[in-house]
Simulated assay, not measured.
Amino acid sequence: MDNYSHQYFGKNLEDLVFRDISDFFVAEKEESDKIEFKAFHPQYGNFNRNLEGVIRGICAFLNSNGGILIWGAPLGQTVSDRTIFQGALSLVDQLIEKDTLISKISDSITPLPVNVKVQTIENGGNYLYIFEVQKSNYSPHQLKNIYYARLDGQTKPAPHYLIDALFKKVSYPNIEGFINLDRFGNADNGNVFLDISIIIINFSELQNEQDISYRLICGQAVFAGSLNPQTARHYSLQGHQYTNRNHIDILHFGAPEMNSQKLIFNLENLADENNYEMDLVLFFGGKKSPLKFSEYKLNFGNGPISAENPVGLITNVEENVLTSEKQKAFGTTRENLLDSILKR
């Protein structure tokens, strides 16, 4: 994934503070195909109208090459046929919780957008919202039946030739995978258990997916099913990996496929060997959809654990990442991948 925040501010999105944005606008700035500025101001209507303009900009980034949108930027000024942004920020006077904001974006744009992140920054009871949007693999997206794109540094309705090209590009279903933590408790022989659910969902309204398979790895616990001779064939790596060998034949839009598993481990050993930490990594893909992974880090040493809802164990989440993007982040190239495989 492109780190647009680092390109413009020298920091990851989650590390940005108010000073980073205010200092950014000390010198005059112009919009481009990769960055858009939205002021919060009555001239753009009420709060919901302001927010709609933000979502329109996000839709355009999804259909283009991604980028950064700052809501709460200075008002634009026209100087010599240029629109510049400089000086005092026009902050938003309402707080929207991150989950609510992402939900509003997801409900407004079709097909469902992914890889939209937001950082909320408070200053004196007002707020800045910085959005980092990745180019979508599932474009074209639309808002209120209109397709938007970033053209000449502006958000505009996309011309027919662009929409036609986006429809003709190679596309694939948007399959997403998640892990739920369902229950925690005591098992036999001084061990404990953690019940989990594996959830696979197709978010592509017009594309079904076929032959979906997945595997889940946990290095610090064994799957209870691996201890049963009747189900042991589904497990490998000495019980640390579960593989869905009964492939999902077809997955329709919005109908989740769920599978429950039980992890068994010794809490004292986990404390001694891993400082109470556990990793869960889910790999999944289908006939047309590329391989993705969702990774979870748990910590069992942060106080009492809810038996019926142990979600508080999760300390870090990275969901629905293309393995190809992860390889790019690690600097994996065709050449060094072949070197590692072929040994020549």
Rank of each mutant, 00 (worst) to 15 (best):
N309G: 07
N299P: 09
M258T: 15
A271K: 15
N186Q: 15
Q261R: 14
A307H: 03
N269S: 11
K297Y: 01
N309W: 09
E209M: 08
P304W: 02
A271S: 15
R245H: 02
N228W: 11
P256N: 09
S306P: 00
S306R: 09
K292T: 00
A187T: 03
N299K: 09
N269V: 03
D195H: 08
I198P: 00
I198S: 00
R233N: 12
L216I: 05
A307D: 01
H252G: 07
V281W: 02
I199Q: 05
L291Q: 09
D279W: 05
S236A: 10
I250Q: 12
F223S: 01
C218A: 07
Q261A: 12
R183Q: 14
N299L: 04
S260R: 13
Y296K: 10
L227C: 11
E257W: 15
L216V: 11
H247W: 08
Q261V: 06
I212T: 07
L216C: 11
Y296N: 06
I217W: 05
N246E: 12
Y242M: 05
Y242W: 13
A232D: 03
Q261M: 12
N246S: 07
P229C: 12
N191A: 06
N266W: 10
N309H: 05
F253G: 03
D249P: 04
I264A: 09
H240K: 15
I248A: 03
A307W: 00
N244A: 07
H234Q: 10
N266T: 09
A271E: 13
R215S: 13
D195L: 05
F203P: 00
N208G: 09
G286T: 05
S289M: 06
T231K: 11
E205I: 10
I196H: 00
L263R: 02
G185E: 09
G219T: 09
L251M: 05
G185I: 04
L280Q: 11
I248W: 07
I212F: 08
N244H: 14
I200H: 04
N186D: 15
N202P: 08
D195F: 01
P304N: 06
K262T: 14
G301M: 06
H234K: 11
N274K: 10
S226N: 07
K262A: 01
I199T: 13
A224Q: 14
I217L: 13
A307R: 05
L282R: 02
G219C: 06
E205H: 02
K292M: 06
L237W: 08
